[in-house]
Design a protein around this nucleic acid. Structure first.
Lengths: 138, 138
DNA sequence: CGTTTATTTGCAACAATAGTGCAAAAACGA
DNA sequence: TCGTTTTTGCACTATTGTTGCAAATAAACG
């Protein structure tokens, strides 16, 4: 069982109130969080700027990754185990529920490879599936 | 050859300067446009608000569709032929070039179906591929 | 431990991006 | 052309993201 402090240390980050708190929020949430979610739900209030910078640090060091969305929001979710700093392995499918609006990382569903027209060289793919999630299908 | 006015009429929209102009911009562009692109490139200047509302109308009536992105921008692109109002058929792959930053609709590459974990019911999928596009591969 | 150094935080200010209400202007239908 | 409906632009407000800088905090080291 890995403690919050261990995770921060392992990723070369200093241990601060903000980082502990925000990382904690990710750990107790299964699903993705937006900047706004985080700002509202930390135990102590943190400055908006701190949240931005913390998220930035977390992405850089490979603790969380960004999720593409169909609207204009940015979502973040924990990387499972195997992300190395600066080199994310987030090529799994993301699921957005139409009912509860929650975004879930489907860690076990990898993004399939598609054949592109001649001349297009792919480097990275992302896939979003919308529908109704496990919880909402009761 | 379908004129701009025909397209607007067919989709139940009144014909106005703004709509003609913005639709024209889409027709002469192959690729996706952001709000900012549109605001900068229309022949006459339109109010920011007008652009927002025009895009909204176009999406509602099925002339254009939104494209998911990995950053926090919203992109729009023309629907080819078969979109009915409120029911888009944009299940093709979108390609974002790392060099020129342009987004291209790969109309002929359909989003593959993935098998989801038990309990997840999909209704819609989107896929984004990043890399180097036709033009930038010289 | 306490002191020094480096990092992080919060504030203030700013910039860019969205959205709303309302009156004037334009488009449509007859 | 006239009356009705729709669309537009302006002013205003809200939200979101960024930057510089001084104060606060964490780490490093004796």
């Amino acid at each position: 069982m890995e403690s919050i402090n261990d995770i921060l240390k392992k990723n070369g980050l200093n241990i601060t109130e903000g980082r502990k708190n925000i990382l904690g929020l990710f750990l107790e949430t299964n699903g993705a969080l937006s900047h706004a979610d985080i700002e509202k739900n930390t135990e102590v209030e943190f400055d908006r700027v701190t949240v931005y910078r913390t998220l930035q640090k977390f992405v850089e060091s490979g603790i969380i990754h960004q999720i593409p969305t169909t609207d204009n929001t940015i979502l973040y979710a924990l990387c499972k185990d195997n992300c190395v700093a600066g080199h994310h392995h987030d090529e799994h499918v993301h699921f957005i529920c139409n009912d509860c609006e929650k975004t879930t990382c489907l860690e076990n569903v990898t993004v399939p490879t598609v054949t592109l027209p001649k001349g297009f060289k792919p480097t990275h793919s992302a896939m979003i599936v919308k529908g109704r999630c496990l919880d909402c299908n009761h």
